[in-house]
């Protein structure tokens, strides 16, 4: 049963992602991308990772895609609508390189990572525990990196508007 559900939601995620990049209208691309995030969240639920699934919907489908839509609607991308998917040789090359790297990375992870996570990964307490004990330095480093990115954006946009 769970195996069948995995294939249903996995196929849904792949299909939605395909429609995301082939849709002619950027708003529809955003809509399909939301669908793709939802399907990915469903796959996480099948792995008992409820926290990750909820955060996937909350952060990606709920917050980041709203920002995407906000920008799309604000600058009104009508010109793009007619062109649809353009495949430049460079893009195909980049995609192939990325796929190879991804395949290599997944292959190198070994069986331990590819198997089901243990029951505790999905709970907030377990995640918080590992985040604030074992991985506290990487966690803080990532926070600093994000903060730097935010500050950089503010500084860059300010300089432009003053000039």
């Amino acid at each position: 049963m769970e195996g069948a559900m995995f294939y249903v939601f996995g196929a849904l995620a792949v299909l939605c992602t395909l429609f995301t990049i082939t849709a002619k209208n950027p708003v529809y691309s955003a809509l399909w991308m939301i669908g793709s995030f939802a399907a990915t969240a469903a796959v996480f639920v099948l792995l008992d990772a409820f926290l990750i699934a909820t955060v996937e919907v909350l952060v990606y489908a709920g917050a980041i895609m709203v920002l995407f839509l906000f920008v799309i609607m604000l600058i009104n991308l009508r010109a793009e609508e007619q062109q649809g998917l353009r495949l430049s040789p460079l893009a195909i090359l980049a995609a192939l390189v990325f796929l190879t790297l991804l395949g290599k990375a997944v292959n190198d992870l070994g069986p331990a990572v590819r198997s089901r996570p243990n029951d505790l990964v999905g709970t907030p307490a377990a995640l918080a525990e590992s985040m604030f004990t074992r991985y506290v330095v990487p966690f803080e480093a990532v926070s600093m990196l994000l903060l730097a990115a935010i500050l950089g954006t503010v500084v860059l946009s300010r300089r432009k508007s003053q000039a």
């Binding site: 939301i34 926290l51 909820t54 955060v55 919907v57 909350l58 489908a61 709920g62 917050a63 709203v66 907030p124």
Partner: peptide, 10 residues
Amino acid sequence: ILFVFAFSSL
């Protein structure tokens, strides 16, 4: 509560 916020954000 995270479930609540996830769907209220949708």
